[in-house]
Every structure is written in structure tokens, then in C-alpha cells.
């Protein structure tokens, strides 16, 4: 199973390296948001320090949706999803590989965009890099777990570009709340125990939804 996931991952990453469609569009979107918000508030204001975790996560979520919306589009439009479904393997392999692809692409964008946000919004994560990366990992994983499943549902609808956010947002609200609160606690240099409380919720959320998504995926991609 791991080998098959690796094969599918290789195919998606190689295609992306050749086209650079997803990562490029996510990066451009994120940078535009950073610039717009930077010019929207007076430099050095207290409000921007309070709002920066929310702005950061709003950027990640919308940029991530741009990428996840495309997860299954090529596969469905060209019929390649049928080619994958014909392969002698458990269909959860398709889900896990797409989840990892989304996680890697969104994570890459986050790692590039976060230092730029730190410069624009005047915050530092160097002292708490470990907790920040852990929070980023758990939040992005949860966000991708649900987004990958819903993008497989949305791709078969007529309004697929609009459908993913409509399906996705209500379910990821707990992740957004935990991520924003944990980021805020990290930026303000609060105690690890306070950060950990938010991370524990993220871990529970990730595990529960990962299991549910793997179990549901086969029914989602069949008619």
C-alpha cells in the first residue's frame, strides 16, 4: 500500500513540477493578500498584531482551497480517475496520495509565505519555531484531510468551484479556531501548556476525520 501511495505521489509531484500551476497560483494569491492587508492598516498598529494570526490563517485557507479545488479536476476531466480505480489496490490509496499531495503543496506555500508575513506584520516565530511548526503541521493536516475528501465530492457537481468552500468551511471551523488561537498564543509568547491545549484538539480532530475520510472515500468516488 505504501509503495502504491508513493507511485501516485511521484506522478502528482512530477506533473506539478512540470506545470507549476497549483503552487504558483497559491503563492501569488498569498502574496497578494499579504500586500493588500499590509497597506490596509497603519504601520505598527496594535490592531494588526492582534489580527495577524487570523489574516495568516485566512490566507492559508483560501490559498489551500485554490489548490485542493484542482485535486481531482484533471483526473475526472480526462477519465484518469477511472484508470486509477481500475488498478488492483484499495481505493483509499488514491485518497491518501491526494491527501499527501495537498498537504505537501499547501505546506510548501505556508513555509514560503510565513517569513514574508513575519516581515509585513512585524512578528517573530524564531523563539517558538518548534511549537509553530507543530501547529502548522497539525492544522494543515486536518485542513487537507477534509478538503481532499470534499474536493472528491465537489468535482462531480456542476458548480464544483463554489461547492468545495461551501462544504469545507462549516466542517473545518474547529481547525480554524484552534489554529488561530494557537498561533495567537505563540505570537504572544504564552505558556506551552496553553498552546498544547489547542494542539490536543487538533490531534483529536485529525485522527477522527482521517479515519472517517479513509472509510468514506470509496463511496464518494463511486456513483
Amino acid at each position: 500500500m505504501i509503495a502504491k501511495v508513493g507511485v501516485l505521489l511521484w506522478k502528482d509531484i512530477l506533473s506539478e513540477l512540470r506545470t507549476k500551476e497549483l503552487i504558483f497560483s497559491m503563492l501569488v494569491f498569498s502574496l497578494m493578500v499579504a500586500v493588500i492587508f499590509n497597506f490596509s492598516f497603519p504601520p505598527g498598529s496594535e490592531f494588526i498584531k492582534d489580527a495577524s494570526p487570523g489574516i495568516l490563517w485566512m490566507t492559508f485557507i483560501f490559498a489551500g482551497l485554490l489548490g485542493m479545488n484542482r485535486s481531482f479536476v484533471y483526473e475526472v476531466d480526462t477519465g484518469c480517475l477511472q484508470g486509477l480505480m481500475l488498478a488492483p489496490m484499495d481505493r483509499s490509496v488514491i485518497y491518501i496520495s491526494k491527501l499527501l499531495v495537498n498537504f505537501i503543496f499547501i505546506g510548501t506555500v505556508e513555509l514560503i509565505v510565513t517569513p514574508l508575513f513575519a516581515i509585513f506584520f512585524d512578528f517573530s516565530i524564531i523563539d517558538s519555531l518548534g511549537p509553530f511548526l507543530l501547529m502548522l503541521f497539525l492544522s494543515t493536516l486536518g485542513f487537507s484531510v477534509i478538503g481532499t475528501l470534499f474536493s472528491a465530492i465537489a468535482v462531480n457537481t456542476k458548480t464544483r468551484e463554489v461547492m468545495l468552500p461551501i462544504l469545507h468551511f462549516p466542517v473545518v471551523i474547529p481547525i480554524i479556531i484552534c489554529a488561530v488561537q494557537a498561533t495567537s498564543a505563540i505570537f504572544q509568547g504564552r505558556e506551552w501548556s496553553e498552546i498544547w491545549n489547542w494542539l490536543k484538539i487538533l490531534i483529536a480532530f485529525d485522527i477522527i476525520f482521517l479515519i472517517l475520510a479513509i472509510l468514506m472515500f470509496e463511496y464518494v468516488i463511486e456513483e
Binding site: V7, L14, T78, A87
Partner: peptide, 23 residues
């Protein structure tokens, strides 16, 4: 089928290698 199940951004050889590994 009339749909080929092939990936346009992969070469002919890469497409066959991809499906060969899945099988």
C-alpha cells in the same frame, strides 16, 4: 475506452511505468 486514462504531462514511457507499478 474512448478515454485513454493517460496523463498528458507525463511521457509515453512514464505513463506506462506509472501504470505498471500500480499493477
Amino acid at each position: 475506452a474512448h478515454q485513454t486514462f493517460l496523463y498528458e504531462n507525463l511521457t509515453a514511457e512514464e505513463n506506462l511505468r506509472f501504470y505498471g507499478r500500480l499493477y
